[in-house]
Design a protein around this nucleic acid. Structure first.
Length: 620
RNA sequence: GCUAGCGUAGCUCAAUUGGUAGAGCUUCCGCCUUGUAAGCGGAGGGUUAAGGGUUCAAGUCCCUUCGCUAGCUCCA
């Protein structure tokens, strides 16, 4: 939640944040991906937050002038801007936005001061009823009896609102805001309630900041993994096969292979064992696991095999549990760590699908740790270590959130306490700061979720480490302890990439598809200037290929054109070969993102590629 | 799933008030022999997402289905 700072106006408005709820929202680029834009800490003398909130009032005023019969709902500030929800006589189109903006400038010219006033509930209700503002009346009803009711007025506009706002309309720059898009939004975020029309806008202290933000948005669009995926032939989705099912094309397949190989290396070194489990299972498995009961909506419909219902797996855990349960375990066996790149299928509503980021079939980098309660903390330390190693390799910074016991949960308080202690203890040993998310845990156990920040400052849902009390109970897991008593093992569920689809989709945007050498599908191109250098070029390409670097040998067409083509294909290294180079046994190296060229020997070129690859360097 | 919008060649886009589809790039074939982000010429390519309807006539209007986009709800 963005920090709220008081700015001007009066202090009456201490009620619930009528309009300032929704930390999620707008800034979300690419829906449903759990990304949200960072809140810009750069604030002027008056809070940007207040500026945006006030701009949303100005917009509501303008909309009511254009549509006098409109009803208003809520209009909070959000990351980078604001929105306001309306019930309108007709659907809005893109063409309406400039018209509303124009009207806003007129409102701005006459708005004057933002005045806050405290009203009695009766007065407030009268005022809203008179205005026919039913949604606001509903909000009024929800304000607790012991809290004050405030209105914010400017010009002829009056709105039930907690504030805070700017002091006068003069503080809102006429060239610092822009309406960006419209969308549907349920009243109170409830899919059973009316669908309202939401208008999103962005607002800044000046034109320069606005332009900077718009340029940033443009960059976001340029990096959209769907756009790059098409342009660079990375992946596709074929409606004949089904929405939300991803085809990894050769170049992206190569990226994934490298990730997988590295992932397995790390896991083997950490004592995980690879396991493989079936993609379908008799329905009773998911009945017993509780998935059918708790996640019925996301499990694909059953298929009939010999008169018995089978399901495509939505999770890998029951499979790993089955392996664990296939024999008796001594405490000496523990911890047991099973790892699988497990493909799962989940039904996601059609409207939520989004490129590789939100799909219906995906592969998790899944692993389950079965251990004794006493081993839990050590195991968690190791997981946190691996999380850090993996995320920092890509240059992601991250924040960790500890989700504690929710109201509805299973397992004794004692068990929860032990697990939380282990999570906290592990974090402390790693010097990992934990943001608390009280009550945010899943019903079956506490967890640490990571949010990672990408090159554009956007937040993505990252790794997760969850302690699970549910499955060991449901599948009656046990091990024989040193005192010859059968005991319940603790089960830890963890994924670091999350899913390859989402993670790699994110990587495409994070790197703008300029993958580091160790992942880059085609790290180098060799370009002979004329046919006379073709033979030498082919030999260099062969040397690079033997060293493990896929290399493009491009001989057709003018050099300038080939360079352009390689640049557009995002090949970071281009070795140009002319008469001079062949004579001296060098290449003229053109490196993406660097000006000019450097001459170096073929050996040095290979050495440089090796160094970048083996160190998993982020720079070329 | 919901609200709104969209679906024209492999890609990016055109097609006056309904009058039977056009460009650039890509691809292919020639020519050009290239010094650091587009050399020149020619050719090929579309049952306008699919199906149905209105009309003398539908890319354009209506309906259904599929898919996509912005959000909402939900999620790895």
């Amino acid at each position: 939640m963005p920090r709220r700072r008081w700015v001007g106006g009066c202090m009456d408005g201490r009620g619930p944040m009528l309009e300032s709820r929704t930390p999620r929202g707008p800034g979300t680029v690419g829906r449903g991906t759990a990304m949200s834009l960072p809140f810009d800490p750069q604030e002027g003398p008056v809070s940007l937050h207040a500026l945006r909130h006030s701009t949303s009032h100005i917009m509501a005023d303008a909309v009511l002038r254009l549509f006098p019969e409109a009803k208003v709902a809520i209009g909070p500030p959000v990351d980078h801007g604001f929105y306001y929800d309306f019930e309108l006589p007709r659907p809005l189109t893109e063409e309406d936005l400039p018209v509303i903006e124009e009207e806003m400038r007129k409102v701005l010219a006459e708005a004057g001061e933002f005045i806050c006033s405290s009203l009695s509930r009766a007065e407030a209700a009268d005022r809203l009823r008179e205005a026919g503002q039913d949604y606001k009346l509903e909000l009024l009803d929800d304000i607790p009896e012991d809290e004050g009711v405030t209105f914010y007025d400017h010009g002829t506009w009056s709105d039930l609102c907690e504030g805070p706002h700017v002091e006068t309309a003069d503080q809102i720059p006429a060239n610092g805001f822009k309406l960006t898009h419209t969308a549907g939004a349920y009243w109170r975020g409830d899919s059973d309630k009316t669908m309202l029309q939401r208008i999103y806008g962005t607002a800044w202290w000046n034109r320069k900041d606005l332009r900077k933000y718009l340029a940033w948005l443009e960059e976001v669009q340029k990096r959209d993994h769907r756009k790059l995926g098409r342009e660079l032939d990375l992946f596709s989705i074929d409606p004949d096969f089904g929405a939300g099912l991803v085809f990894w094309h050769p170049k992206l397949g190569q990226v994934r292979r490298k990730l997988e190989a590295w992932w397995w290396d790390l896991h083997e070194a950490a004592g995980y064992w690879p396991v493989y489990t079936p993609h379908v299972a008799g329905e009773q498995v998911f009945e017993r696991s509780g998935h059918l009961e708790n996640y019925a909506d996301m499990i694909w419909a059953p298929m009939d095999v010999d008169g018995r219902p089978y399901r495509v797996k939505p999770m890998n855990c029951p499979g790993h549990v089955s392996i664990f349960n296939s024999r008796r375990h001594s405490y000496r066996d523990l911890p047991l760590k099973y790892a699988e790149l497990g493909s799962v299928y989940r039904y996601e509503p059609s409207g939520t699908l989004h490129g590789m980021l939100r799909v219906r079939g995906f592969t998790q980098d899944d692993a389950h740790i079965f251990c004794t309660p006493g081993q839990l903390e050590d195991e968690l330390v190791e997981v946190l270590e691996m999380v850090d190693q993996i995320l920092s390799t890509f240059g992601y910074s991250y924040t960790a959130y500890l989700a504690t016991q929710p109201e509805k949960s299973m397992g004794s308080d004692e068990v929860w306490e032990h697990a939380l202690e282990a999570l906290r203890g592990a974090a402390a040993r790693r010097d990992l700061a934990l943001e608390e998310d009280p009550g945010g845990g899943v019903f079956y156990g506490p967890k640490i979720d990571f949010k990672m920040r990408d090159a554009l400052g956007r937040e993505w849902q990252g790794p997760t480490v969850q302690v699970d009390f549910n499955l060991p109970e449901r599948f009656d897991l046990h091990f024989n302890d040193a005192d010859n008593q059968l005991k319940r093992p603790v089960m830890v569920h963890r994924a670091i990439f999350g899913s390859f689809e989402r993670f790699v989709g994110g990587l495409i945007e994070h790197f703008a598809a300029w993958f580091p050498i160790w992942l880059c599908p085609i790290p180098a191109a060799v370009l002979p200037i004329t046919a006379d250098q073709e033979e030498a070029a082919a030999s260099i390409a062969r040397i690079l290929g033997e060293a493990g670097f896929r290399t493009a040998l491009r001989t057709e067409g003018p050099l300038r054109r080939r360079i352009r083509e390689c640049e557009m294909e995002k090949i970071p290294y281009m070795a140009v070969l002319g008469e001079r180079e062949v004579e001296s046994g060098t290449v003229s190296l053109r490196v993406h993102g660097k000006d000019g060229q450097e001459a170096l020997s073929v050996e040095d070129f290979v050495a440089r590629l090796r160094e970048r690859r083996d160190s998993r360097a982020l720079e070329y």
